[in-house]
């Protein structure tokens, strides 16, 4: 579904991604872990062109998206949802409006259809009575669940999660991970950058270890955690587990 060839990204003199070639299949749940500064978030943000790659190619459904015009990129982004570390809800809009803004503005749904969809999604993320509240009145965990609902409103084919629980108080991490697990069970294609090893073990179909701008090692979760090969990964796991 997504394939990446020789992807590099520089920020000025700093080489953050040093040539990544990867393939992500439909229905896969890829979890990316690695030390901070390893380039994992940058890699994720390149997939929907939030960052413009310095070189290399990215294909989505067989179509190269790195050379597309803005207009076509916008169309691609509708199909790739993204969930951010800091939720990025729109504080000036009600929860319902947060969810319906994009589908209505983009002419995908009428306001009524979108409202109906929002009601369904709010039920699904367990916050049916918050439709008319503003984001400021929600807890961090609730905000992230709304952010996921907002992404789902676009009916994306894949969702990119950029450290979705890193900004949360520990007691709120569970509710967000549960929702993500639920999505995974429903067959959503997911690419998740996270520090939650439990989630990686339980939900991932593949775990990827990134360090120094490259994918150092990847495997199915049981092998990845029980039998790490590279010394860097061993050292990393010994610190986080």
């Amino acid at each position: 579904m997504i394939s990446v060839k020789n992807l590099t990204k520089d920020f000025g003199d700093r080489k953050v991604l040093k040539g990544i070639t990867e393939e992500i299949q439909k229905g896969e749940k890829v979890v990316i872990i690695g030390p901070s500064g390893s380039g994992k978030s940058t890699f994720l943000r390149c997939l929907n062109l939030m960052e413009t790659p310095t070189s290399g190619e990215i294909y989505f459904d067989g179509k190269e998206i790195t050379k597309l015009h803005d207009k076509e990129i916008n169309l691609i982004r509708r199909r790739m949802g993204m969930v951010f570390q800091h939720f990025n809800l729109f504080p000036h809009l009600t929860i319902k409006k947060n969810i319906t803004l994009a589908p209505v503005k983009l002419g995908i749904m009428t306001q009524e259809e979108a409202d109906k969809k929002a009601a369904e999604l709010l039920k699904r993320v367990g916050l049916p009575d918050k439709a008319d509240d503003y984001p400021a009145s929600l807890s961090g965990g609730q905000k992230q669940r709304i952010a996921i609902a907002r992404t789902l409103a676009m009916n994306p084919e894949v969702i990119l999660f950029d450290e979705p629980t890193s900004a949360l108080d520990p007691e709120m991490v569970g509710e967000v991970l549960n929702l993500m697990k639920q999505l995974a069970d429903e067959g959503m294609t997911m690419v998740v950058v996270t520090h939650e090893m439990g989630f990686a073990k339980e939900v991932a179909s593949r775990v990827m270890f990134m360090a120094d701008g490259v994918v150092m090692e990847q495997n199915s979760p049981d092998k990845f955690f029980s039998n790490p090969e590279s010394p860097r990964l061993k050292e990393f796991l010994s610190r986080v587990l």
């Binding site: 993204m82 729109f90 803004l101 676009m154």
Partner: peptide, 18 residues
Amino acid sequence: VDVGQLEAGRSLGLNYRQ
């Protein structure tokens, strides 16, 4: 306005103007 707001909008497929 936090740059994340721009990113959130763009990630949903809205263009810069929208």
